[in-house]
Amino acid sequence: GQTTVQVRVPYRVVGLVVGPKGATIKRIQQQTHTYIVTPSRDKEPVFEVTGMPENVDRAREEIEMHI
């Protein structure tokens, strides 16, 4: 079944991970077949990644490449 993982990043890289108009996070979602919730600016900088476990792992690696 599907799993949801929280990926915490430093505040300063949230914009990098999301990309211009969300382009980068969309690409990560498409490439890894996951659904990613982006943290809002006034909340903790935690991305929520949902999908099959192996896909979630890949998405987390993609996010962490920006750190």
Rank of each mutant, 00 (worst) to 15 (best):
N55P: 00
E54N: 08
D57E: 15
I28V: 07
G51T: 00
G51E: 05
V9F: 00
I36L: 02
T38V: 11
A23Q: 14
V5C: 07
I36D: 03
F47P: 00
V49F: 01
H66C: 14
H33Y: 08
E61P: 01
A59I: 00
I28L: 06
Q30M: 08
Q31A: 10
N55F: 03
P10F: 00
M52K: 12
I67F: 07
K21P: 01
P10N: 00
R27T: 08
M52V: 07
L16V: 09
N55R: 02
M52Y: 11
K43M: 15
T38S: 13
R27L: 04
V7R: 01
L16K: 11
V37G: 08
T38H: 05
S40H: 09
A23P: 07
D57Q: 12
E61T: 13
P10M: 01
Q2V: 12
T24A: 06
P20L: 05
R27A: 08
R41T: 13
A23N: 06
D42R: 08
S40N: 14
D57K: 15
Q29G: 09
V17N: 01
Q31L: 12
T32D: 05
V5E: 04
V13M: 14
I67A: 15
V18G: 02
V9K: 02
E54R: 10
N55D: 14
V13G: 11
M52E: 11
V13L: 15
V18H: 07
M52R: 11
E62S: 08
Q6P: 09
M52G: 05
M65Q: 15
R12G: 15
A23L: 09
R27S: 07
Q30G: 05
Q2F: 14
T38L: 10
P45N: 01
G22H: 02
G15F: 00
V37R: 15
V56R: 02
V37S: 13
M65N: 14
R58V: 05
H66W: 12
N55I: 04
R27F: 02
T50L: 06
T3G: 06
H33L: 05
N55Q: 15
H33E: 10
Q30D: 13
T32P: 04
T32C: 05
I25N: 04
P39N: 10
L16P: 05
G19W: 01
Y11T: 15
T50G: 04
E48Y: 10
V37E: 08
G15W: 02
V49D: 03
I28G: 01
V7P: 06
S40F: 09
T50A: 05
T24E: 09
E61I: 07
V7G: 02
M65A: 15
R8I: 08
E44N: 10
H33G: 14
S40W: 10
E44C: 01
V56W: 02
H66Y: 14
Q31W: 00
I36T: 01
G22T: 04
Q6F: 13
V17M: 03
V5M: 07
V7S: 06
V9L: 01
V56M: 07
D57H: 07
L16W: 12
V37N: 08
V14K: 04
T3C: 10
T34M: 02
V13T: 14
G51Q: 02
V46S: 02
K26A: 12
T50E: 01
P10R: 03
Y35S: 15
T50C: 09
D42N: 12
G51V: 03
V7T: 02
V49G: 07
R60G: 05
G22Y: 05
R12Q: 14
P10Q: 02
M65V: 07
R60W: 06
G15P: 12
T34H: 00
P39A: 07
G19T: 01
E64V: 04
V14S: 05
Q30E: 13
V7D: 05
L16R: 14
A59S: 01
H66K: 13
V5H: 01
T32A: 03
I67R: 06
P45A: 08
T4E: 00
V14L: 11
G22C: 03
H66D: 05
E54I: 08
V5I: 15
H33P: 01
S40C: 09
I25Y: 07
V17E: 06
P53N: 09
G22E: 08
P10D: 08
Q30R: 12
I63M: 02
E54F: 01
V5L: 13
P20M: 02
A23W: 06
I63N: 12
R60S: 05
S40Q: 13
R60Q: 04
H33M: 10
Q30Y: 04
E64H: 10
K26C: 00
R60L: 12
K21S: 10
V5N: 06
R60C: 13
I67Y: 15
R8H: 09
V56T: 10
I28K: 01
G22Q: 11
E61A: 14
K43W: 07
K43Y: 07
K26P: 06
S40G: 14
K26S: 07
Q6I: 09
H33C: 08
R41K: 14
I25H: 05
R60D: 00
P39G: 07
H66V: 15
R41P: 14
Q2K: 15
V9N: 00
A59D: 00
P45C: 07
E61N: 09
Q6L: 13
R12S: 15
M52L: 13
V7N: 00
A59R: 02
V56Q: 07
T24S: 03
V37H: 05
R12N: 15
P10T: 05
Y11S: 15
E62N: 04
E44T: 02
V9C: 09
Q31P: 04
A59F: 00
Q31S: 09
V17A: 07
V49L: 05
Q2M: 14
R58H: 03
R27E: 06
G19L: 00
Y35A: 13
K26W: 03
L16I: 11
G19Y: 11
A23F: 01
Q29R: 06
V37L: 09
I63Q: 01
G51S: 00
E62K: 12
G51A: 04
P53D: 05
L16D: 13
R8C: 04
V13Y: 12
P20S: 08
R12T: 11
V13C: 13
V14A: 06
P53L: 05
A23V: 07
Y11P: 15
N55M: 06
V7I: 14
G22V: 05
E64Y: 10
L16F: 12
V5T: 07
R41A: 14
E62G: 04
R58Q: 09
V5F: 09
V13W: 12
R41S: 13
K26M: 10
V14T: 06
G22S: 06
M65I: 12
G51D: 04
A59V: 03
Y11G: 13
Y35V: 15
T38Y: 14
V14C: 01
Q31E: 15
Q31K: 14
H33K: 14
F47G: 04
H66T: 15
Q6V: 14
M52H: 06
E64I: 11
V56H: 03
Y11E: 15
V7Q: 05
T34Y: 00
R8P: 11
P20I: 14
T24H: 10
